[in-house]
Amino acid sequence: MPEMKKTREGWGKGLVALGDENPNVVVLTADLNGSTMCNFFAEKYPERFVQVGIAEQNMMCVAAGLSLTGKVPFLATYGAFASTRSLDQIRITVAYSNLNVKIGGAHGGISVGPDGATHQAMEEFAIIRSIPNMTVICPSDIHETRKATIAAGNTFGPFYLRFGRENVPVVTNEDTPFQIGKAIEMASGSDLTIIACGMMVYEALVAAEELGKNGISARVLNMHTIKPIDREAIIKACEETGAIVTAEEHQIHGGLGGAVSEVVVQNSPVPMELVAVKDRFGKSGKPSELMKAFGLTSKEIIEASQKVLKRKK
């Protein structure tokens, strides 16, 4: 088994690293300081930490106001709230104004577990990426989340970062280069390409290894940036491998699979299969049980790969 760590810890550590370098970095939370791991920052820089109470809409706009005075505000709440309850505030105040606000959507995906459907954010990519000016990132592990957080802090504009609650396999290391909008090739291959984000990158790697045992050479792309998506890497994958499978812990409509499809059909059409949550709400259960029950494991990626290869001309 690989090392297991929480992506949210990467967010927390990234905030502290940013705070160390930039006195304008401020952090806000809506009564979820501990679970979003903003507390690392809050303890070190209490004068730059803003507790907003249970008021996500206000938090979004307070962050916007802080940004107007030159602050670099990072806010965190559960993605289920950030991407929906304060959506109007994101769309009009933050994105339309193109403000330097960084939104942390914690506890993303079904892997939140026993809290059930209300707290399992699985629509954020579709919702947020449809809004102009927004950048959307879903890092794969603790290191990548830390780097993505720091990169967001050093890049002007509104960002949405999705990270999870549970320990997930560490698939990159401290030194893996991270660039916004640039996919990382995690495994080389020529028969098909598996494009994944978040904790599904690990599942994609497991699937690729299994496929390899059967003589199928699968490339794995870690598409940590959902928007702006790495068109170049997708088109290259179409041309060089001729088939695509996407894998994400998100609804099947409008997420990573949708974003990749948009590039594929307009540039170099090849058969595609999408591994995602099939247009249904989540439910309570253990994270590992839910990943299986909702078809988000290497098994489904392998099946999708076999299916897509049959469709490949």
Partner: peptide
């Protein structure tokens, strides 16, 4: 700041004040 959806501007102002 852009605006027009009611109820948001006051929060932005409050953030700017802070």
């Amino acid at each position: 700041c852009s605006g027009g959806s009611l109820g948001q501007g006051l929060s932005v102002a409050v953030g700017a004040a802070l």
